Amino acid sequence: METSGLDRRSKQVRAKKKIERLKGFYIHLAVFIIVNIMVISGSVVGHMNNGDSFVEAFFNFGTFSTFIFWGIGVLFHGTKVFSYNPFFSKAWEERQIQKYMDSDRENMKKFM
């Protein structure tokens, strides 16, 4: 069975958008990694120049604060791009739809 040209075009547009979102996420992830390597290195070196030992400088909360908070943003970006939602999954949606359809059917029987 051959798909229509319009259907094929629609699929191409959706695929292109998905690839653009994926590319955006990978760029975000690469910038996150590069910038955080520089920030962590700079922070450790700065703390060591102020007299801290390597261990003290490395395990300082300020060293990883950018990594932690920006990492949360990268995590949410990734969950959106990869369509992962542990709270409102497709199965949950289908159960809710079925529940409301059943409720609607019961309400319609009252009027028949």
Score class of each variant (00 low, 15 high):
68 I>T: 14
34 I>N: 04
56 E>C: 06
40 I>S: 02
21 R>Y: 04
12 Q>S: 13
90 K>G: 01
70 W>I: 09
88 F>G: 01
31 V>A: 08
18 K>I: 11
58 F>H: 11
77 H>R: 09
28 H>K: 05
85 N>K: 02
87 F>Q: 05
13 V>N: 04
64 F>T: 15
42 G>Y: 06
37 I>T: 06
53 S>D: 04
84 Y>S: 01
5 G>W: 00
68 I>Y: 15
23 K>W: 04
91 A>W: 00
57 A>M: 09
3 T>L: 10
23 K>Q: 11
52 D>M: 14
91 A>S: 02
28 H>I: 11
25 F>V: 13
38 M>P: 02
59 F>R: 04
11 K>I: 08
38 M>E: 02
18 K>C: 06
88 F>N: 02
70 W>P: 01
19 I>W: 07
25 F>W: 07
59 F>Q: 02
7 D>Y: 14
81 V>W: 04
50 N>D: 13
46 G>D: 00
14 R>T: 01
12 Q>L: 10
11 K>S: 09
69 F>S: 07
69 F>N: 11
76 F>T: 07
78 G>Y: 03
69 F>K: 13
3 T>Q: 09
51 G>W: 03
44 V>Y: 01
7 D>R: 14
23 K>T: 11
79 T>K: 07
91 A>Q: 05
52 D>A: 14
71 G>T: 00
32 F>V: 03
22 L>P: 01
16 K>E: 14
34 I>M: 06
58 F>R: 08
85 N>I: 03
82 F>M: 07
88 F>M: 03
45 V>N: 09
14 R>K: 06
46 G>S: 11
15 A>E: 13
56 E>Y: 03
83 S>Y: 06
29 L>S: 12
20 E>M: 14
89 S>G: 00
55 V>I: 12
28 H>G: 10
22 L>K: 10
19 I>S: 07
20 E>G: 12
69 F>V: 10
32 F>D: 00
26 Y>L: 13
31 V>L: 09
11 K>E: 02
6 L>V: 08
33 I>H: 05
71 G>V: 00
86 P>T: 00
89 S>D: 01
77 H>K: 10
68 I>C: 15
80 K>G: 02
30 A>W: 04
29 L>P: 03
55 V>G: 05
35 V>Y: 08
46 G>T: 01
14 R>A: 10
56 E>W: 06
32 F>Y: 15
